[in-house]
Write a protein that binds this DNA or RNA. Structure first.
Lengths: 341, 341
DNA sequence: CACGATCGTTGGAACGTTCCAACAGGGAAA
DNA sequence: TTTCCCTGTTGGAACGTTCCAACGATCGTG
């Protein structure tokens, strides 16, 4: 007593009832008389009583908390997914414990470890870098949902991702409809997501009878990677320059736009650029990037709902949800210039 | 046993020792014999034992966890502060519990409430919207540090912020050195931070003998607010147009850049623009915004260190740290055009 | 008028950990 | 030999909550 936070015992003593009744009353049980309830509530308010979540979770053996591991808060894609996650969790009475592990797999693993020590009931991994066997071991202990990647083996792990093949097709369709034919693809490097986007691009080009004009330039997922890839795509010596660029993600697309401008060309008059992701920043007036927008918030919500389902039905089979992206047409695409340059 | 996670008792049974000795061994006490230690470690590994943080925190009455409330993960300033916070906390053996409350004060309060239920030992508020009396009540219960705002009353709350007056001065000095005289300020609206930046602008203008040319245009902290404010600043009818804009933050500055271009003017040839904050996105090639950069990571680290100090010395007085920003000169500022337009 | 049912209330056990006082055994000192 | 002190180990209490079996009082019913 006295020292430290007030406990349920202190409230009981002040209200003149037993600790059990306080517990009942505070959780809104109907079988508590009106007077007792009023006295207890008053006592709790007087003392500034606040339930101890650690003690509760110990007693009920449930923490009502889920852990979220996020790769990198700097890439604006992730906060938007997170919004959806938190909304859905909150409305279902779960708390969120958020950690970031950077891109270091070991650090990520230790962060997940500490989430598990806190007895989280489930895990949402927003774009992790964990080794497959580590991931599998984790998923064996606690329901796990992976967002953004769908290359996860095993049936104990739910996944939520967007359909990169369809998305890349949307971009190509849009450009073709604007009259473009020489459409280059700046790839995002050697990871499953980027590979799928490149493949979607190639398939769509074939579908439009442009298979011979397929041109994929190796790149990466950052600003500078996009910049460099665009320079090499537009560089001289390799036949006629492309009139449009499909870039693996928005960050790289922004770099590509800068490169185009540095080369003395205009976007979109001389070269159209389409990104991928739909980050909010792409919608800023001074950026105004045409892009394939993933339903980021919806992906987050879906992930949270899948997880809750698995928590409530531990024997349920894993679900793999693929959502469909949509094209956001903005200012970096335009009909192909009348005269070939 | 059997069902659920293995506990310290299971480990003890398997290693053939008492639970107390397991506890000792796992925490690395020197007074455990080598054989016992080895047997215990082996048993723990076999069972996949993981300590229960809730039970520990109940027993030792310390959670070794700090709560972090972040206003908005979408504004890129905050993740960068957060990086510094997490680094410093991690190296001092604290876990982080991160929540976001959006801009709704009630929601923020309930998120803080749930942090307190988890028995966090301290709180870092990265730009909150809590009412002063709520804030004070919270700080009375648990050590609290506020980052970004320095207008907090009471001596029980530490603050970490940057010196907005000096920062605004840096921007004005830079523009004046480039030959600009008609420098307008696009304000960030009615909040303490924005007011300080405007005041710093005015003071600096006076200092350069440009007091008569002070011109403050009401604006806000978003892309569109900056856009609209820039349009009205550059609009006709109010004497000669400014040749440079000092904008309350980077997001608004990006909107201002877009507005300048829409008006058929070039940045920086016709109009120079300086932002404030130093978000990473401002450094992207296609953006390349000159700005007053706050030492964001350092602010986060300082906040974490202040908090840890207060946790370890509960009677310590609150510290109010003000860090100095630096100017990042990039592509949106240039010498004033030779001929007045 | 005794009986069981209902209502509101209660103490004790449990959750998994840490801490503390106390233990046995062996060696050194008396 | 007895005493004392180490070293390594142990059981029980505590942390703050929830759950459960059981309590006494009041009520209606036969």
């Amino acid at each position: 007593m006295g020292s430290g936070r007030p406990t349920i015992h202190d409230v009981a003593a002040r209200a003149g009832v037993s600790k059990s009744l306080v517990s009942l009353a505070l959780r809104g049980s109907p079988r508590v008389s009106e007077e007792s309830r009023a006295a207890i509530l008053a006592a709790a308010a007087d003392l500034g009583y606040r339930p101890n979540a650690a003690a509760r979770s110990l007693a009920v053996r449930r923490s009502r908390t889920v852990g979220v591991l996020i790769l990198d808060l700097h890439n604006p894609v992730f906060p938007e997914i997170l919004d959806g996650v938190q909304d859905a969790l909150r409305t279902n009475g779960f708390s969120t414990m958020l950690v970031t592990g950077g891109s270091d797999p070991a650090l990520q693993q230790s962060e997940v470890e500490s989430l598990l020590q806190f007895q989280v009931e489930g895990l949402i991994l927003i774009s992790h870098r964990l080794a497959p066997e580590v991931l599998r071991a984790i998923a064996a202990e606690v329901p796990t949902v992976v967002v953004t990647r769908s290359d996860v083996p095993g049936t104990r792990i739910d996944t939520v991702s967007n359909d990169d093949l369809v998305g890349a097709g949307l971009a190509v369709d849009h450009l073709v409809a604007l009259g473009h034919r020489r459409i280059a693809c700046l790839s995002g490097g050697d990871n499953p997501v980027s590979r799928a986007r490149v493949q979607g691009y190639e398939t769509a080009m074939e579908r439009h009878g442009l298979g011979r004009l397929v041109r994929t330039v190796p790149g990466g997922l950052t600003d500078t990677a996009g910049h460099d890839a665009a320079r090499s795509a537009l560089g001289t010596g390799t036949g006629p320059a492309p009139t449009a660029l499909f870039v693996a993600n928005d960050m790289a697309a922004l770099g590509a736009v800068a490169a185009v401008q540095e080369l003395g060309l205009r976007v979109p008059d001389d070269v159209s650029v389409v990104g991928y992701d739909g980050i909010a920043m792409g919608g800023l007036r001074s950026v105004d990037l045409t892009t394939v927008a993933q339903p980021l918030g919806e992906m987050g919500e879906t992930a949270a709902r899948s997880l809750i389902h698995r928590i409530e039905h531990p024997r349920a089979r894993a679900r793999h949800v693929t959502l469909t992206p949509r094209l956001a047409v903005r200012g970096t695409t335009a009909p192909v210039a009348a005269a070939g340059s």
